[in-house]
Amino acid sequence: MENVTMEEQLVYDRPESMASVQTHYCPGCTHGVAHRLVAEVIDEMGIKDNMIGVASVGCSVFAYNYFDFDFVQAPHGRAPAMATGVKRVLPHRFVMTYQGDGDLASIGMGEIVAAAARGENITVIFLNNANYGMTGGQMAPTTLPGQKTSSSPSGRDIEVAGFPIRTAEMLATLDGAGYVVRRSLHDPKNIRMAKKSVRLAFETQKHGLGFSLVELLSTCPTNWGLTPIQALKWVEDAMIPYYPIGDYKVNPALKELKI
């Protein structure tokens, strides 16, 4: 005879690849979501012991404390060069950089473009929150036209400061890029999409398909002067129109993958 009983099942728990420490990020900052997605993907792929992360300079400077695998810390903007050094001597390890927009798209633009052009087999997690968070919310290369920051108090004047950089679109033009997409972290649906992209970025590396980068639109409630919930809305209303969610470069081999 069959008995039907109710049994409790675990739906979600903190990923093992995240260290058991509280982060220094402000309440509601989506850096934490990005960290979590990366850790979940690394758990799912079972590559924690094969990982070497490269932390950057900015709010994510302490990323090495929040992941439970080997990490090195790069000078401002140089994470892709440092990751190149690691990957070239350890080609069978997984190498990731975790960089913000000031680090990657301003001071480190040379290093990221060169790494992408070489088809460097590394994965880049790129957080775009339209300002320099760590130093108190100054204008970044990603700051939107008209956006007020502590160094563009009347709003970014494109006559003076020029235009924001659409990093994913730009890097996707390079032949060395295997996977370049933009995702957002502002709601559950987009977070799920972002996680799938993080997985595909690491799969790109696993299969030797070249440079992979996931640009993640992220919030900075503190420096934007918004509540965490308002900040999520601002990503949707202000950032996505300028930085559309999209697949800018996807190596055809990735479409065949069964994950």
Partner: peptide, 22 residues
């Protein structure tokens, strides 16, 4: 063995930095 011509001396020294970590 590994040889790589970097994009600049800035790139080169940071590649050496990364590789030395291993």
């Amino acid at each position: 063995r590994t040889f790589l011509q970097a994009e600049s001396e800035l790139g080169a020294v940071n590649m050496v930095y990364g590789a030395a970590c291993t």
